[in-house]
Amino acid sequence: MSTAVVTVNRGVFRGLNLRQKTLLMIGLTSLLLLTIVVSSVSLGEESLQTDFSSKNLSPSTEHPFGTDWMGRDMFIRTVKGLGLSIMIGAFASTISTILAVILGLLSSAGKTADSFVSWIVDLFLSIPHLLLIILISIGMGGGATGVIIGVAFSHWTGLTRVVRVEIKQIKTQEYIHISRNLGKSRWWIATKHIFPHLIPQILLGTILMFPHAILHEASVTFLGFGLSPHEPAIGIILSESMKYLSAGYWWLAFFPGLSLLIVVLAFDMIGDNLGKLIDPKKAHE
């Protein structure tokens, strides 16, 4: 008796199967986002020199996104802004995830803890996101720290619920009962049986939180409650451009806005594709 496995689809060039396509998609989008972050960090202050001889130029080959009222290249400003947004998003999502996991685990500790967690989730959900972020951000004295903490404290609710429900569902499984009967401690069961099931959910939750975090950061900054006007943030660029739109300088808002949209969509795409890989029902299509 031999174990014969028929290989249907070998190599990259004989047409890609869905899993390969998904991974390729994830790889490419991640590369795009990584490039933005790396280049925004490596571009120094000097690249944004004011040059009044070339102010308010429309898009050209020299300045693909045009220049602003101080003669700064809009493409470089956009890249720097996006990089900043992504980094703030990353910080905020990470803090959010940590909060969500801690609260999710806490909810499985007992009945009182569970109702406390549910109560606090409901409490945070009942306040509109934007309002909450503005309140926290102002309370923390504005700036990057304020925005990060504001976004982090308003985005953990969804993932907390997911983690809580997932734990509840796993805890009723028969193999958990059996493990307990085999003399395993609660801690052992939590780390060996329950936690491995949570990792994909947590990963997916974090990535899908990214676009929200980025958009909220940009909107709060746009409204003037977030990052200071000296920072090269997308929100700042957009709010500045408002003054010049009526003068016909459309590129000041159009390109940065479009880039922001693309970045947000890219994160969404990574999340969706990752979800496809993780979901056992779709995994074999």
Binding site: T7, V8, N9, R10, N17, H284
Partner: peptide
């Protein structure tokens, strides 16, 4: 038969 993913990216029947 079912097309399934084996280890890695290969698909098997």
């Amino acid at each position: 038969s079912f097309i399934q993913y084996a280890s890695g990216l290969r698909q098997t029947e």
